[in-house]
């Protein structure tokens, strides 16, 4: 078990280093000269050169990369061109909102997706299955802003059950989280269904039935424990995904998360912020997968060895 953890951890570490390299290169592919961004249009050649020197951008790439790594280790993600604050601070200030939305969104995805998938699989080929799959298709293909605006209109405006957007406690969180739950839950129900359909054809399911196990327990105990693994992996992926790609929902509801920060900094080509956000999102994906890797062996004993 310890060896397993150590290996996983080592692998994750390597991936993180790879990611830092990519984010570093990112700054060269972004079609904007950071020096010009800082110095402004009318700066003289001299000023430009001196800023370039100040930023260390006149040094060879490997040196720059090592310096970048050195700064990262100290938690220094650079300074935003536009907002003149530390990128790390900017991201940290958005983190609570993003984490709240992330937890809420995954909660509703799982809440909508998993039961629907199980239900559909256990009634495979019948009407209930078709209905559930149509619902999931609608969820998957509906644009987030449509779902978001619709929920906002019905539950916040017409029925006045929830606030009309903005950041705050649970009542503010529910609508944006449900929006992500609906649009993402469709993927979960599909994944859950196909995994469960596969499992329900296995020999051990027949054995369970032949033992006299209640049909509900056949599905929810014997089936689910085997079928849930790909869904856990999917949750792991989503942790990374929601760290940076909730911009549409954030805009609809005025939710001050990292998604909006990303979008704003892309619009003004604020390279340090883009690099920082990319790094954080990638880290989140690694952490999400790592967590899934830790949980899966608890469910499937065959994964405990190796």
């Amino acid at each position: 078990m310890f060896l397993f953890l150590a290996k996983r951890f080592g692998a994750s570490g390597l991936i993180v280093i790879g990611i830092t390299f990519i984010t570093f290169l990112l700054s060269y592919f972004i079609p904007a000269d950071p020096v010009r961004m800082l110095a402004g249009r009318s700066a003289t050649q001299e000023t430009v050169e001196s800023i370039r020197h100040q930023l260390g951008l006149d040094q060879p790439l490997p040196v720059q990369y090592l310096k970048y790594l050195g700064r990262l280790v100290q938690g220094d993600l650079g300074r935003s061109y536009k907002q003149k604050t530390q990128v790390a601070e900017l991201i940290a200030s958005r983190m609570p909102a993003t984490l709240k939305l992330l937890v809420g969104a995954i909660f509703f995805e799982v809440l909508f997706g998993i039961p629907a998938g199980i239900f559909a699989a256990s009634r495979r080929g019948r009407k209930a299955d078709n209905l559930a799959m149509i619902a999931s298709f609608v969820g998957v293909s509906a644009p987030q802003f449509v779902v978001g605006l619709l929920l906002l209109w019905v539950f916040a405006y017409k029925m006045a059950l929830y606030p009309l957007g903005g950041y705050g406690g649970l009542s503010h969180l529910i609508l944006p989280a449900v929006t992500l739950g609906i649009t993402g839950g469709g993927w979960y129900s599909r994944m859950m269904r196909s995994s469960m359909v596969d499992v329900l054809q296995q020999d051990y399911i027949r054995t369970a039935r032949a033992k006299g196990v209640r049909e509900s327990a056949v599905v929810l105990v014997h089936g689910l424990r085997n079928a849930v693994l790909p869904v856990i992996a999917m949750i792991g992926m989503d942790i990374g995904f929601f760290m940076s790609w909730t911009v549409v929902v954030e805009s609809v509801y005025g939710w001050p998360g990292i998604g909006q920060l990303t979008w704003q900094s892309i619009q003004v080509i604020d390279t340090p912020v883009i690099m920082g956000v990319t790094l954080v999102a990638a880290l989140a994906i690694v952490i999400g997968n790592f967590m899934a890797d830790l949980i899966m062996p608890l469910i499937d004993p065959r994964l405990r060895v190796r």
Partner: peptide
């Protein structure tokens, strides 16, 4: 080989 549930003791 496949008649026992792999995830339960």
């Amino acid at each position: 080989m496949t008649s026992l549930n792999p995830t339960f003791s």
